[in-house]
Amino acid sequence: MNSTKYILGIFDDPDDMMKGIDNLKEKGISIYDVFTPMPIHGIENKLGIKESRLPIAAFIFGCTGCTVAFCMLYYMLVHDWPMNIGGKPHFAVPDFVPICFEWTVLFSSFGMVFTYFYSNHLFPGRTPRVMDLRATDDRFVIAINAKTNYDHNQIDSVLKSAGAVEIKHNDRKYISYE
């Protein structure tokens, strides 16, 4: 049996790669993933990837931060030890604004970034799951699962006609495990 696990169509131009994606989709060939050195705008619609919900997470984290800060200030200044500072009111809401705001920002940015790291499995020391080493440099790589798309010759010709500069048949999914 053919030992090819993944077929990589390697492009040196993002527009050619987009054409490659269109052509593959026309032929009904499913795309496993695309690896690029820079964000490609409009690719998520082509690949049918839903819009990220990270901004919603950021909003919820921000609300949490604001609430936590307000509760902390209320507990410390009003409930636990109300101090008489020149006879002014303890529950001085305008004075709460700066710290509530700072914590809104702090919680939303840290919450969102850590959610991002969690959802994409990014953490220090994680083994990079890279299919082609130049995909972070100057190559735009379309990866096709060779086990679910049987007609390898057709895939090759589709990629080539779209302008792929190189086509790889990899026996291993990731080359970065050694």
Partner: peptide
């Protein structure tokens, strides 16, 4: 170790851009 295992897949970039935009906003 420093790269956190970045591989430049579509979803990483898509979420990366969402994160950048919201971080810029806050």
């Amino acid at each position: 170790v420093m790269s956190f295992g970045w591989n430049g897949s579509v979803k990483t970039w898509q979420r990366f851009e969402a994160v950048s935009l919201v971080l810029a906003g806050v």
